[in-house]
């Protein structure tokens, strides 16, 4: 089974989904991220879906669940890099991903986390 690596950068955890994940892979990511938030004390989680070609209701629900779990563990989740075709399809499917914050790209996602307070990564200190 494919497992998505969880990277740590300062107070932020970053995952970039690069493969067409099976459902078990999606569930494993949920658990890996929850564990990593607690183990590292991260204040923010960024999920990069730039390479993700489709988000169906299962993956959409996983993104919303990760956001809820992280919030309960005192971390904000930002989904970044959603393709326009994916956004159009998600809305038509009926999934608005309420409660999931998004940013256009990784850079804006990091800026949003810093703006929300708490999360700081070394590279933002000039």
């Amino acid at each position: 089974m494919d497992r998505v690596p969880v990277l740590k950068l300062g107070d932020i955890l970053i995952v970039s989904i690069q493969v067409d994940l099976q459902d078990q892979g999606v569930l494993a990511l949920q658990e890996d991220l929850a564990d990593a938030v607690v183990a590292t004390g991260a204040r923010g989680v960024i999920i990069d879906i730039t390479a993700v070609e489709i988000v169906d209701s299962f993956i959409g629900r996983m993104l919303a669940t990760i956001a809820s779990i992280s919030r309960m563990l005192d971390a904000e989740t930002i989904v970044v890099g959603m393709r326009p075709a994916v956004a159009i399809t998600l809305v038509e499917l009926g999934l608005s991903l309420g409660g999931v914050r998004t940013a256009l790209n990784l850079e804006k996602g990091v800026a949003l986390l810093n703006h929300l307070g708490g999360a700081q990564i070394a590279t933002t200190a000039r």
């Binding site: 489709i54 393709r83 399809t89 038509e92 499917l93």
Partner: peptide, 16 residues
């Protein structure tokens, strides 16, 4: 591209 994304998403739902 948008229609590809829609039909692939529908296929994913129906297969599941």
């Amino acid at each position: 591209l948008v229609d590809q994304t829609k039909i692939v998403t529908a296929a994913s739902e129906l297969a599941r």
